[in-house]
């Protein structure tokens, strides 16, 4: 497994890179779309020729972020999930997953392993931990009552 080192790509690095290709997806927050979202993101990232492990990392991280939108952001309602995948120079994928849901009151707390606000529905509280472990960078910006954007950065090392 790749470990986080100083060489690991940062969000700032990615902002300065040229976008080579981009896709935007808009989905209603129905749980059936979790599989659709991760499959589309993975298929798009396949252009960068990632390894099967890297593509599985992307699928898992996207699945977690989209599940959060459905389970938490749009808890008792159906809203729209906006996903943008940008493929950048340097074999970097930047995936933004945005909702206009309830927002997260305390992002630092929400990112703690095993923290969940929904234990009775068997949520493991490991969503952000999985995203952080399987991506190079995870950025979360959120405002109560406005929504949340999760940015996943994954650099593909190649075969």
């Amino acid at each position: 497994m790749k470990t986080k080192t100083e060489k690991s790509v940062t969000i700032k690095d990615v902002s300065s890179k040229k976008t080579v290709n981009e896709i935007k997806i808009k989905l209603p927050s129905l749980s059936v779309n979790e599989g659709v979202a991760r499959a589309v993101c993975a298929a798009f990232c396949a252009q960068l020729d990632p390894t099967s492990t890297e593509i599985a990392d992307v699928k898992c991280a996207v699945s977690e972020a989209v599940t959060n939108c459905i389970v938490h952001a749009y808890k008792d309602t159906v809203g729209i999930i906006y996903i943008t995948v940008r493929l950048c120079e340097g074999r970097i994928a930047r995936i933004d997953i945005r909702d206009r849901g309830c927002g997260i009151e305390d992002v630092t707390l929400a990112r703690q392993p095993l923290f969940t606000t929904d234990a009775e529905n068997e949520r493991s509280g490991m969503g952000f931990t999985v995203m952080e472990s399987f991506c190079d960078r995870v950025k979360v910006t959120s405002k109560s009552g406005v929504g949340t954007t999760v940015t996943l950065i994954k650099q593909f090392a190649g075969k």
């Binding site: 991760r38 898992c60 977690e64 068997e122 949520r123 493991s124 490991m126 931990t129 999985v130």
Partner: peptide, 13 residues
């Protein structure tokens, strides 16, 4: 073929 943290919830439960 695929499992995310929801699988952990399923196993733990």
């Amino acid at each position: 073929d695929f499992m995310d943290s929801s699988g952990l919830g399923l196993i733990m439960g």
